[in-house]
């Protein structure tokens, strides 16, 4: 299993906002433990999906020069349950960008319903910092593999939704 918690982008406006899609499937292992006989998409993994969306949004705004990591979730409220068969849209707006990090406002929607909303703060790691700690940028989510999600998103939407 790969640590991808978004399936593709439906919208990507550099330096501004992005919408990512996550299709929740009963084929996902974790839903069988959370909870046995009552599968619910874990809130923590929805935060991860919003953080991946926001991390790419911020990383792209900074030219992907430094790895972006989730630093803090100052606020997150959950309003409803997400179950297999649901399609989540993560609407993420970049509110702060600076070389040291950034912040986003985020909302998870299933259809018309807001199922979660909150704020996420990211740090940008300095090259000497992660090199010293054995941080391998090539394994970092947005640097290689997750960027393909953007390509898939583009392929899936030849005419960019406005």
């Amino acid at each position: 299993m790969r640590w991808f918690w978004i399936d593709r982008f439906a919208e990507f406006k550099s330096g501004s906002h992005a919408v990512a899609v996550k299709n929740v499937s009963l084929a996902e292992e974790h839903l069988h433990d959370h909870f046995p006989g009552y599968p619910i998409m874990p809130g923590s993994l929805m935060i991860e999906g919003m953080a991946q969306t926001g991390g790419i949004l911020l990383g792209e705004a900074l030219g992907f020069e430094k790895p972006v990591v989730l630093a803090k979730v100052p606020k997150m409220e959950f309003h409803g349950w997400v179950t297999p068969g649901d399609t989540i849209h993560y609407h993420v707006h970049l509110t702060d960008v600076r070389p040291e990090g950034g912040a986003v406002q985020t909302k998870a929607m299933v259809g018309e319903n807001v199922v979660a909303e909150g704020e996420i703060v990211f740090f940008c790691l300095e090259p000497n910092n992660f090199a010293a700690n054995g941080f391998d940028q090539s394994k970092f989510s947005f640097s290689l593999n997750l960027l393909d999600v953007m390509k898939i998103g583009k392929a899936g939407y030849p005419s960019e939704p406005s």
Partner: peptide, 21 residues
């Protein structure tokens, strides 16, 4: 340490100022 960036963002927004590193 991770809270300081969050605090800087909030100060910038609330007081409409720019705070350099």
């Amino acid at each position: 340490s991770i809270d300081f960036l969050d605090i800087v963002f909030r100060l910038e927004k609330n007081f409409n100022i720019k705070i350099e590193r």
